[in-house]
Amino acid sequence: MFDLPIEGAELLAVEFGDIVNYFSVYTAVLFVFALLFTVLAIISRPEKPVDIVFGGDAYYAKKIPPEQLRFQRFMAIACGLATLGAMISGDLFNFTLFSSMIGITNIGIVAAVKNKHVLEAAYQYGIVAMVATVPLFGGAAIALATTGTLSIWELAGAGAVPLLAKMLLVVGVMGEGMAPFYIGKAEITRAPGAPYVLMIHVSSLLLFLRVVEIALTV
């Protein structure tokens, strides 16, 4: 148990050799939140989007094909699972892998949407997300090279991970879905399927919250 004055007490640790996945008060709250929204993505039906006609007071309901929504739901659930993994992972490299998985599934959630703007935004965002794996893997690799381990459990409080590695990790996570690269996501939000599109934000915010914890801990 490492009890740093950062994230509250440790609650539970699941050991796999020297890699220890753990729940602290902090990560447990994040985990519960991710779980909540994954369940919401599973159980709630999508909304029926309504659009306004500019220059008048007419409106019309958009038709969304059900198979598109099914695919979105599948991807949203996958995204939720990846987020859950990223929240409890006690291994730097696993964390980066979960992060990139979140990046992929985020694109996947909107990939089936037949809207030129949404697709364009998803594509540009996807390129950023893909490039962001470089600082992510780079950060983890530099941490491994300097300390000889990837276990957050062992690195906690030692301050052995160089600042460069931490910064690369944070930049990588930002690229996977936070501001300032986030702006592309505003366009993505136009896609229908509220419970699924919401998962994009849930995953990227939680991911960022987790990487802040990691950067302060290791």
Partner: peptide
């Protein structure tokens, strides 16, 4: 570690190519 990194990279590339096609 390289193998999972490679897999992630390829899957992202494939996903993006699909988006590009559409």
């Amino acid at each position: 570690l390289i193998l999972p990194g490679l897999v992630v990279g390829i899957s992202e590339l494939m996903a993006l190519s699909e988006v590009y096609l559409v």
